[in-house]
Write a protein that binds this DNA or RNA. Structure first.
Lengths: 342, 342
DNA sequence: AACTGTTATGTAATCGATTACACGAAAATA
DNA sequence: TATTTTCGTGTAATCGATTACATAACAGTT
């Protein structure tokens, strides 16, 4: 087994002090060139590796950043994380991942754990908007650890965020359904306490109004992001006096459930009924009856969040600048709503 | 902003030494109970948090473990990671994730980076079997950092692994196709240098032989794990003198491509042609024509890998014990191959 | 020769926690 | 009373790297 080589070992071998070795390795200009070369050569030959833990203790920076997401086994979050990773790795940061499983208590625990672990920053998508974890968030800010929200954010002074324009997403999806000739468009909505879902809903509403179509409360059905919820929603909607002829769902999974239920009832898609989802999950494209969906460019979102973080780290001394990056959503039109193109 | 509180701050306040504070906080039995209580109470009131970096430097353990996977935005790997996380978090470990993007150079870099970061262990799925990175692997073992392979493994003495029985997976999938009455079963195979793909192939072959069916080389088409590759494979297979009437694909994505191409050619599934895939990706279940697939229980695989790691960490002094855990695959029979049930 | 300046390196403190060893005081034993 | 134990705490080294400050050696200036 190879003993761990420290700068002291190198120093002893060369009959100089560790300070000189450290300076030589850090390209300190005060070191004679011959000494520097010798040290660097010796370090290489002894297979010296800097101890990052010692460096971290001394500098107070761990070079780890924490990422908190509801769950990792969803294409969206996994892709965001991939984006974060790709952007941060070249800067020497390692990413530590935590999952909340949509549980506020775990969110709080994760925040404390990451601060404990001395991370240099926290990038996260909040689990729900609630005051329950205010203490944990306050703790992060108090420690001056950069905090950045992506996708699902909370309003906290001085905290930056990277989101997509969910309003626009809802708007273009709905407008698209209208342009395909749909007259009665329903909406499967998510947890309205979260900005993202509220905005998707507002975009939907605005698109209706802008097109001179009436907005009806009964066309808005709250759902969880699951296939089952989508089926249930269709069952409710089809019992209405004037059942809808299209659905804009804030979740791809619910959209899928809706489609399954509609097929069950022999309602032809997209001829009689159009459906659009949100998130552009991989399966929406793979289906035989592919599903129209709003893409959130998760990779880009991850990279952007990382960049915002990097900006904030550099200027720790300056006043914190709250930056709100809003990415543009992109509608992927597929068979589930294409009366004309396909 | 809250200044960082150290044990020295507590010591000063109580007019005792940091050593006593440290001992009190660590429940050292030599400390008078009254002192211990006082220290603990004071620490709490001052909002003291142990500096993990200092602890890490002193103990040589970072409480971080590294996970290396080809990519994170695949349901399989994301689920394995989720399993690892769930098992390790309660033990105080944080998970650091690295991606190789199927690139051997990045695999090597990741290994060195993690060792650099002083991780307490590395859990990984290798990118490819090659001697190119032997140096990097050797480096890990030399540093006495526990190394555990999951899913895709390499043969290295003393290194444990957690895999599924891919041979059996291939076997039961093929047997199932045979039982559905398929007579000419083709196989879309993966990179044969990787055990997992080789074993799936061997399982397929054995199932044929056990059923008294001939094994034909021309029925084995190497593919990448992509939709396109699956389409191409079907095009090749259907040009054979005796085209097959079933496919066992080592990849769900290729299976999907095959199905799309078969439909294009108006070949009815499962009536004229049956298809089975591997991995049980979420979309296989969501399709209208759901796809039969072999489940690899990724969550369980992650948890099991974590457990094997925990075992190895505990007994650092004992001789390294190579442990090979093999999980059982499970066939999920769906419409793409169900002539009888549905 | 005396002084100043420059250059290269050494000395020692520091980051925060742990711990082997030492030591004084009190309690137990002879 | 003298001696040994036990108990509770202090002292100081340690983990490995960085860095403010000190200093030695030498060159240049007057």
């Amino acid at each position: 087994m190879s003993e761990k080589i420290t700068i002291y070992d190198i120093a002893k071998k060369l009959n100089i002090t560790a300070a000189t070795v450290s300076r030589a390795l850090n390209n300190n200009p005060k070191i004679k060139e011959s000494t520097r070369d010798l040290v660097i050569k010796t370090a290489a030959s002894m297979n010296y590796k800097q101890n990052k833990l010692a460096l971290a203790l001394k500098s107070g920076r761990s070079n780890n950043i924490g990422v908190i997401v509801p769950r990792i086994d969803s294409n969206f979050f996994a892709s965001v994380i991939r984006g974060i990773e790709e952007e941060l790795q070249p800067h020497g940061y390692q990413v530590i991942i935590c999952q909340t499983h949509e549980d506020l208590k775990r969110e709080s625990e994760n925040l404390y754990t990451l601060i404990d672990a001395q991370v240099d920053g926290i990038l996260m998508s909040v689990t729900a908007v609630s005051t329950e974890n205010d203490g944990a968030f306050h703790n992060v800010l108090e420690k001056n650890v950069p905090l950045i929200f992506f996708d699902r954010s909370k309003h906290i002074d001085g905290v930056s965020s990277v989101t997509i324009n969910d309003f626009k997403g809802g708007y273009i999806a709905t407008k698209h359904l209208i342009s395909e000739g749909c007259k009665y468009i329903a909406h499967l909505s998510g947890d309205q306490s979260l900005e993202i879902f509220k905005n998707r809903f507002l975009g939907y509403k605005q698109a209706l109004l802008d097109s001179g179509m009436p907005f009806k409360e009964e066309y808005v059905v709250p759902v969880k992001s699951s296939v089952e919820a989508g089926k249930d929603a269709v069952n409710i909607l089809l019992q209405l006096e004037t059942p809808p002829d299209a659905i804009f769902s804030s979740s791809d999974f619910a959209a899928l459930g809706a489609i399954q239920e509609l097929k069950e009832r022999n309602i032809s898609i997209p001829k009689e009924f159009c459906v659009a989802g949100f998130s552009n999950e991989p399966f929406t494209k793979f289906m035989e009856l592919s599903i129209t969906s709003v893409d959130q460019s998760p990779l880009e979102m991850g990279k952007m969040s990382a960049r915002v973080f990097l900006e904030q780290v550099d200027k720790t001394d300056t006043i914190k600048i709250e930056k709100k990056v809003v990415l543009a959503p992109e509608l992927h039109i597929r068979k589930s709503s294409s009366r004309t193109n396909f």
